[in-house]
C-alpha cells in the first residue's frame, strides 16, 4: 500500500512543480551578480613607473602545486625609465588549462607582480588559447579589474599578530607560558 501512496505523492509533486515558475536563469542572457571576491584569470600588472613589475624571482614558479608557471629571468639591467638597476624577466607563461586557482602564486609574490582578475574566464576553442603568455597577461592587467588580493596585502593579512598579542596574554597569567604559538606556525 505504501507503494501506491508514494506513487501518488510523486505524481502530485511533479504536477505541482510543472505549474510553478521555473527557477532557471538563462546564463549567457542573464548573468547573476558575482560575489565580491570572485576571481578567475591572471594578470601581470605594471609597477608605478610603467614597467612590468615582475623581477623574475621564481617564487611563484616554485610554489605552484600544478606547475603551470614557466618563467625565464632576464638578469639585472638598468631601467630605461628610472635609470636604476633592477631585475627583469624575459618570458612568463601560465597554462590556465591545468591551473587549480589556488592563488598561491599571488600570495608569495613580494613585488605584487602577479594578481588575479575579477572577470570570469573566457571559454577557449583550442587548448593553446588557454596558455597565457606575457603579452596576454599584460593585456589582462590593462583590460580587466584586478582583485583586492596582492602579494603584500595577503602576506600582511596572514602575518602573526606581534605587539598586541602578549598584552592580551598578560591579562590571563595561565596562558603566559605559551604565548599563542599556533598563529606563528601558519606563516608561509
Amino acid at each position: 500500500m505504501g507503494y501506491f501512496n508514494d506513487t501518488a505523492k510523486a505524481l502530485r509533486t511533479t504536477m505541482v512543480n510543472a505549474f510553478r515558475e521555473p527557477v532557471t536563469q538563462e546564463f549567457p542572457l542573464v548573468i547573476r551578480p558575482r560575489a565580491e571576491r570572485f576571481r578567475a584569470s591572471f594578470a601581470l600588472p605594471d609597477d608605478e613607473h610603467g614597467e612590468v613589475a615582475c623581477i623574475g624571482c621564481l617564487a611563484c614558479e616554485r610554489i605552484c602545486p600544478s606547475r603551470v608557471i614557466k618563467m625565464k629571468s632576464g638578469g639585472k639591467k638598468d631601467s630605461p625609465v628610472t635609470g636604476k638597476k633592477r631585475a627583469y624577466i624575459d618570458e612568463f607563461v601560465l597554462d590556465l588549462s591545468a591551473c587549480i586557482g589556488c592563488e598561491l602564486c599571488v600570495q608569495v609574490c613580494n613585488s605584487d607582480a602577479i594578481v588575479m582578475v575579477r572577470q570570469p574566464e573566457v571559454p577557449a576553442f583550442a587548448r593553446e588559447d588557454l596558455v597565457l603568455d606575457m603579452e596576454k597577461l599584460r593585456a589582462n592587467a590593462k583590460l580587466k579589474t584586478a582583485s583586492w588580493g596582492t602579494g603584500t596585502r595577503l602576506q600582511e593579512m596572514q602575518e602573526p599578530p606581534k605587539a598586541e598579542k602578549p598584552a592580551v596574554a598578560k591579562a590571563s597569567p595561565a596562558t603566559e607560558t605559551a604565548p599563542a604559538p599556533a598563529p606563528a606556525k601558519e606563516t608561509v
Partner: peptide, 13 residues
Amino acid sequence: KFAGRMQQRLGPT
C-alpha cells in the same frame, strides 16, 4: 518542455 517544468527548469528555449 514538460519534463523541464516538472523539475522547475525551462526546457528547450
